[in-house]
Design a protein around this nucleic acid. Structure first.
Lengths: 182, 182
DNA sequence: CGAAACATGTAAGAAGTTACATGATTAC
DNA sequence: GTAATCATGTAACTTCTTACATGTTTCG
């Protein structure tokens, strides 16, 4: 019974906040919510078209400069209902958390494998970089407490992403430490 | 440049440990590695066929009872090389961690939204159940230290999954607590 | 004897990625 | 002027899920 096509709901959720173009939505995926869902413009534009056909959203054309046209999408009442339904419905499935690195570890069966240390080093660097980047964003976006209250959802997901990276890093370092002792 | 079709490498990795049927592999996805990659039998059987055609693996038929036939696959030298290449190559991309619940939170912009408490309750229950299940598995599979040494990869991914769930739960409870204070 | 587990496949469709395709505007 | 960014779309392909399809063996 669980709802599909989550991309639809994400787009509706974004438009519920403010009117956006397909390009804007693409940028939001790259920045704010990319930690928890990814979508390319080639998926976003057709989905916007379908949502418009289904009367969940509508758009008006705006002109930038003298020629460039853009479609500013807004959510309709039907779209808002659809969105509320999705949010209110229990989230029963925990979706796949694909992790290529962890799988590689799984196939290394000996603690003494030479490659394992280098692999940990690489991953630690990657996750440290990501964590640094997330922390910087949090600092920039939520300078004051007011900004946190005004955009609680955004605050929560950024905080969760930071928490996740911190946990991952701690685990990596702990395992690396265990290796060096043995 | 990053390698694709990770399912191939996972299957090769599994066969590198011991010979398996398509059914065995399906079960392993449901149990051991489902936390980090999912695949249904409808994806596994065609992939086994392709791997065999590409000469990375081979199979021999075995009969169960008097009629039921099964294909026992083993990895070939070419397959081992392919697998080693994948493992040794740096894992540069961090794949999508889709999380429907976190996205729903993102779209709730007010801390005072009535639904938010119920949503946290549900998620906490789900993750507690999952954590319990993982801990039980660790207890059963790794009773002795010898078992850990003999199957270090398996130990690592189980430990990582537990760690991940613990972190998620702590975050959920912390946020829930914050809500009740305000 | 009946249900659960074993065992293998294919077909249709949804979801997601990469590449193709084009052009305008802005900032340096 | 030129590179980065803004802006929108489609085509081809891969990946993944759901459903279809069938039959055997084992356990209680």
């Amino acid at each position: 019974m669980s709802k599909k096509n989550i991309l639809r709901y994400i787009i509706l959720g974004l438009l519920d906040k403010k009117e956006l173009t397909g390009y804007d939505i693409t940028k939001i995926f790259e920045q704010e919510i990319g930690e928890f869902w990814k979508a390319k413009h080639s998926q976003i534009y057709p989905e916007l078209k379908k949502l418009e056909e289904d009367q969940f959203i509508s758009y008006k054309m705006e002109t930038v400069g003298s020629k460039l046209e853009k479609k500013c999408y807004t959510i309709r009442e039907e779209g808002k209902r659809e969105l509320e339904e999705w949010i209110s419905e229990p989230t029963r499935e925990l979706l796949a958390n694909k992790d290529e690195f962890i799988l590689k570890l799984y196939f290394i069966r000996e603690e003494k494998d030479e490659r394992i240390n280098k692999m940990f080093e690489e991953q630690i660097l990657m996750h440290e970089e990501k964590l640094e980047h997330l922390r910087l964003r949090k600092q920039i976006v939520f300078k004051t407490n007011q900004e946190k209250e005004l955009n609680y959802g955004h605050y929560l997901i950024l905080d969760h992403a930071i928490n996740r990276e911190e946990g991952y890093l701690l685990w990596l370092k702990e395992q690396q430490n265990n290796l060096q002792k043995s």
